[in-house]
Computed example of a mutant assay.
Amino acid sequence: MSIAELLSNIFLPLSLAIIMLGMGMTLTPIDFTRLVKYPKAVLIGLINQLVLLPLIGFSLAIAFNLSPIMAVGLIILATCPGGPTSNLITQVCKGNIALSVTLTAITSFVSIVTIPFILAFALNYFGTDEATTIKLPIFDTIIQIMGITVIPISIGMLIRKYKIEFALRMKKPMRIASTVIFILVFIAVILANFDILTTAMREVGLVTLLLNIITMGLGYLTARLFKLKLKNIISITVESGIQNGTLAFVIATSLLHNVEMGIPTGAYAIWMFITGGILMWQLGKRPEVDSE
């Protein structure tokens, strides 16, 4: 097993699971019932993620006249849900973690249905020679979501419920540990995939940067337009711009058997780690604020 495979198949999922455990220790059931009572933030986040993001991806692919392979690679990325990394960034930025986790979970399951249809259209529209029938490994995807998010968060919430003093005491150390893990993963991913990332930045660096900035900006503006509280604005902003790159790579390389289609994801990973890191640096210093 290569270093890159070791990172993506073992270290990265394990690290994210640990991060999710720490997040679970900050959550209580009331965090989620509050989202049912105030669904506006959830609806805004879902529309940004499931509707506006793919539309922006299509628009940029057409505007930059990308080659069919790069265009479809960009659409693959734009159709993917937010990944666990968005939950980590939201936590460090002191956003609404429950909202972030809820959006990640819902979009992850809904995308099982939406991704095949959107990609089938993209493959046909951009005129690639790939087969237009795409089937996601539904069971594996569900297991991935549960293993990295639902199960560790549930364990963390149980710890919070039965060992509340321990959970509160570990809040700051876990946040620091999450930041350190984030930085280490970022450096490791760059070193392990340096050749691919160099090519990616040269071919689609600008368009992926625009995708990241536009989607984050749109998330921020729509949340502000509907007068959401700061914690929810942070969550929607992050969820709009941080995608599940791991899933995008799986679709490109394992389902469509085209490594080149994974190039936009490689470039986007650089930008989302940078912009996510900037948000963590700036917003992580802010005092805690009330959520909606």
Score class of each variant (00 low, 15 high):
77 L>M: 13
33 T>D: 05
131 A>N: 13
261 M>F: 00
274 I>F: 13
190 I>P: 02
175 R>E: 12
95 G>R: 10
183 I>Q: 01
75 I>H: 09
200 A>M: 03
250 V>Y: 09
183 I>K: 00
24 G>K: 05
193 N>P: 08
106 I>G: 15
30 I>N: 09
189 V>P: 00
55 L>E: 02
20 M>P: 05
224 R>A: 11
244 N>R: 13
266 G>L: 15
3 I>N: 01
285 K>E: 06
118 I>A: 03
70 M>Y: 15
215 T>Y: 00
84 P>A: 05
42 V>L: 08
9 N>F: 06
226 F>V: 13
138 I>R: 06
97 I>R: 13
49 Q>C: 14
174 M>H: 04
101 V>C: 08
91 Q>K: 03
97 I>T: 15
128 T>P: 04
260 E>P: 05
33 T>N: 05
145 I>V: 13
255 L>Y: 13
206 L>Q: 01
281 W>K: 08
94 K>F: 05
199 T>V: 06
275 T>H: 02
205 G>Q: 09
171 K>V: 11
19 I>Y: 04
140 D>R: 01
258 N>W: 11
2 S>R: 02
138 I>T: 14
129 D>W: 12
210 L>R: 07
221 L>E: 04
257 H>P: 01
143 I>E: 04
209 L>K: 03
42 V>R: 04
205 G>V: 10
65 N>M: 01
94 K>M: 10
174 M>P: 01
18 I>M: 12
240 S>H: 01
79 T>A: 12
44 I>R: 10
2 S>I: 02
24 G>A: 04
285 K>W: 08
217 G>I: 14
137 P>C: 04
196 I>W: 13
127 G>S: 07
230 L>P: 00
156 G>P: 12
204 V>W: 11
100 S>V: 12
280 M>K: 00
47 I>D: 10
242 I>E: 00
81 P>T: 02
128 T>C: 06
39 P>Q: 08
145 I>N: 04
211 L>V: 05
192 A>W: 11
34 R>Y: 10
84 P>K: 03
143 I>M: 05
236 I>H: 07
271 W>M: 08
194 F>H: 07
236 I>E: 03
196 I>R: 15
231 K>A: 09
276 G>W: 08
266 G>H: 15
84 P>M: 08
9 N>C: 02
7 L>R: 07
213 I>D: 05
57 G>S: 06
180 V>W: 08
126 F>D: 03
159 I>A: 11
287 P>G: 07
271 W>D: 06
195 D>Y: 12
87 N>C: 05
214 I>M: 14
55 L>K: 08
220 Y>E: 07
209 L>R: 05
271 W>Y: 10
170 M>L: 15
238 V>L: 04
20 M>Y: 07
58 F>K: 04
32 F>P: 03
47 I>E: 12
